[in-house]
Amino acid sequence: MKPLLQMTDLHGGYGDANILHGVNLHVAPAEIVVIVGPNGAGKSTAMKAIFGLLKIRGGSVTVGGVDITGWEPNRIVEAGVCYVPQVDNVFREMTVHENLEMGAFLRSGDLSAAYDRVYGLFPDLKERRKALAGNLSGGQRQMVAMGRALMLEPKILLLDEPTAGLSPKYMEQIFQISRDVRDTGVAILLVEQHAKQALAFADRGYVLASGCNRHEGTGADLLADRDVADMFLGG
């Protein structure tokens, strides 16, 4: 299938230092793709590169065939890409509902269907819609962050370690919600520390190390790979 998102031979980093040395990846419509790799491999950096949040020195990013390299973040959002950063991913001093409202900032008209959809995916949030996001538990905050990104009804959702620091119960819940979101036709690209569980749940995966592609394949293939297992599946 024609890829929805394609990153081709991407080079770039922060300031003068290069972190990414030619990363290639693609995501098809309604596909769940996971990026795994050791700490500091450049996984978050690869996601930020899609949004032009670092200096890109070579390569390109396309969405639906349109080259979006170097675009302003608000235009990329309009192109249907929504991003949940690894940290600081909610407006702490705003209520849960206001966080969702900010997610829909670029939309006008009746948003009730979008709220219903997000509150349907995250019933916990509906109960706490008037609470300040900064006062929620880590798991609920992650749900606010995902909910905010979903309000724009993106074509692809980027999630950077959505389960970091969460209990297994929340992790399972986040994975389940990701599947539900995918079933509504949204593609998901996520970075995960919990490599074993993530590879088991994703359609395809990439292993990144030192800013380069190391392995790629279906989740099952990567789980079966000796080299990948030695790297971080804990032998």
């Binding site: 959002v77 950063p85 407006f91 900010m102 997610g103």
Partner: peptide, 17 residues
């Protein structure tokens, strides 16, 4: 609300468009 968002978390405000 956009002003409050920009005060709260400028990066996320930009990522919200």
């Amino acid at each position: 609300k956009a002003m409050r968002a920009m005060s709260d978390n400028p990066d996320l405000a930009l990522l919200s468009g």
